[in-house]
């Protein structure tokens, strides 16, 4: 049996912020970070608050730039370095390979909950009817009451918004999924639903990189924990 392919490779990544508005103060974040995530694997970033877990996730997504090192993401036959790719290349990579589920739902005011999820599927390239089928399935599995589906989520509770956000992140078939505390404001039932979704993604060969403060969730999904503290530039 061949070992699962490495879909994400982080190699000697370093990042600091230069705060020009504070006299050019240098705020180191992480340095010399290296790890891999293979297909079907869930790697969890560990360490206390402020260790740079979220920043690292954002670097992998290309949301933060990195000062040194490379973030290689498999794109079919190619491998793309997020740290060096053109914006245009990054947009394509995010559309087809690399997805990010943040803690907060940042959406357009008027679009209904189900359409937000469907749109994510369509952007990925799924046909609309398939996207809608998956969206219904996901919203059901995440216990979002059906009467909410056609409403815009601006007035939803934090937990409901987060579940819409998760559905949006999970609806397509991106190879690499970045999860920033997806279960933070969920109750036990819904945490379990999210764990199920993650395990399903793993079985289908998705590489997952996440931050989970909930130890129970972490234990159930993590194959490995990468302790960010040891890369912490501030240490």
């Amino acid at each position: 049996m061949t070992p699962p392919a490495t879909l994400l490779n982080v190699d000697r990544v370093g990042k600091s912020f230069t705060m020009h508005l504070q006299g050019g103060a240098l705020l180191p974040v992480v340095q010399d970070v290296s790890f891999d995530v293979a297909a079907g694997e869930c790697v969890v970033l560990g360490g206390p608050s402020g260790a740079g877990k979220s920043s690292l996730l954002k670097i992998v997504y290309g949301n933060y730039r990195c000062d040194s090192g490379s973030v290689m993401v498999r794109d079919g036959e190619d491998t793309i370095d997020v740290a060096a790719a053109s914006p245009r290349r990054m947009i394509r990579l995010r559309r087809t390979r690399l997805a990010y589920v943040s803690q907060f739902l940042r959406v357009i005011p008027r679009v209904s909950a189900i359409d937000i999820v469907v749109q994510a599927a369509v952007e990925f390239g799924l046909p609309e009817d398939e996207g809608r089928r998956r969206a219904r399935d996901l919203l059901t599995r995440l216990n979002v009451p059906e009467q909410l589906w056609s409403l815009a989520p601006a007035t939803f509770s934090g937990g409901e918004q987060q579940r819409i956000n998760i559905a949006r992140g999970f609806v397509a078939d991106h190879d690499v999924l970045l999860l920033d505390e997806p279960t933070a404001s969920l109750d036990a039932v819904n945490r379990a639903a999210v764990v199920d979704l993650i395990l399903t993604k793993k079985r289908r060969g998705t590489a997952l990189l996440g931050i989970f403060h909930d130890e129970d969730v972490r234990d159930r999904v993590a194959d490995r924990v990468v302790d960010v503290t040891r890369f912490s530039a501030a240490a």
Partner: peptide, 22 residues
């Protein structure tokens, strides 16, 4: 400064951009 929109807004490099964003 130029780049992906979220990158420039979330991790601005130039002093002026940082001022603009802040």
């Amino acid at each position: 400064e130029t780049g992906l929109t979220d990158q420039v807004l979330d991790d601005p490099r130039e002093p002026y951009t940082q001022l603009l964003v802040s």
